[in-house]
């Protein structure tokens, strides 16, 4: 960003910065205001790639969509009790004590299976992503532009199916200051979920992004390439995902 480059120059020439301040146009009452960047999210309308925008700011539901029609989403709540009487053997409500470097399971209670729509490809819960029977792989590419013409030309692909996690899908952060977090035990795609990562083990949250393109192989064998463009809206609120993708990626 141009302004950041400008700021770096300030650091390189600190005396000029200080002296230059005196000649800047500013209101003495509200101070220097034009020296920072605006949080305007990059205009992606001209992007050569398709994009999906998911609002996943809440913690108690999953948002489902298909890559064919990503604007049509279905939001379904996360069950926290077992009302059906039949446990699928995985889905649970688990309380974890999560701290940097250590996770301790405090309790785990079986719940109903996570409800799903009839047709979906991906499900989003904040930064967590599930696939509908698909497999994923995190490449070393940092842009969709870098991808070869065919996914089969990418060397060293090791597909990963969704895996059961007990401490990744946070559904109750109301006691997070005591590091006591309610989680859903459920299968998620780790390569896709690691595209953005929020660490609440020592509040406030710390955000990380992988910056890598991920491949998704659907259960019908078709492949998509996905890249996380952003995880916030224009006001800086987290949980607004923008993902550019190529589908089908031959």
């Amino acid at each position: 960003m141009a302004n950041e480059t400008k700021m770096r120059k300030y650091f390189q020439y600190p005396i000029l910065t200080v002296l230059g301040m005196s000649s800047m146009t500013f209101s003495a009452c509200s101070g220097l205001v034009d020296i920072y960047d605006e949080l305007t999210v990059q205009d992606t309308a001209s992007s050569p790639y398709r994009q999906l925008h998911v609002t996943a700011t809440t913690y108690d539901d999953w948002t489902y969509l298909t890559l064919d029609n990503p604007d049509s989403t279905v939001v379904l709540p996360i069950p926290t009790t077992l009302n059906s009487g039949e446990w699928d053997g995985v889905t649970s409500y688990t309380r974890q004590e999560i701290k940097l470097g250590s996770t301790t399971e405090l309790s785990s209670t079986p719940t109903d299976a996570q409800p799903e729509p009839e047709r979906w490809d991906l499900a989003f819960h904040h930064f967590d992503i599930r696939t509908n029977g698909g497999m994923a792989f995190e490449t070393e590419y940092t842009s969709l532009d870098q991808l070869p013409a065919h996914w089969s030309d990418i060397p060293g692909i090791e597909w990963q199916a969704d895996q059961t996690t007990k401490d990744r899908v946070w559904i109750d952060l109301s006691n997070s200051l005591a590091f006591n977090i309610g989680c859903q035990t459920i299968d998620i795609s780790l390569p896709l979920s690691n595209m953005a990562w929020m660490d609440v083990s020592n509040p406030p949250p710390i955000y990380n992004v992988s910056g890598h393109v991920c491949l998704l192989r659907m259960k019908d064998g078709t492949v998509a390439a996905l890249f996380l463009d952003n995880y916030m809206n224009e006001k800086g609120k987290k949980g607004y995902l923008t993902i550019s993708y190529i589908y089908p990626y031959e």
């Binding site: 960003m1 509200s30 101070g31 605006e38 990059q42 992606t44 910056g211």
Partner: peptide, 15 residues
């Protein structure tokens, strides 16, 4: 490669 990367956004100012 984030859409907001390399930006320095003011959140607080006391003058």
């Amino acid at each position: 490669q984030l859409a907001v990367s390399d930006r320095d956004v003011r959140e607080y100012s006391n003058v």
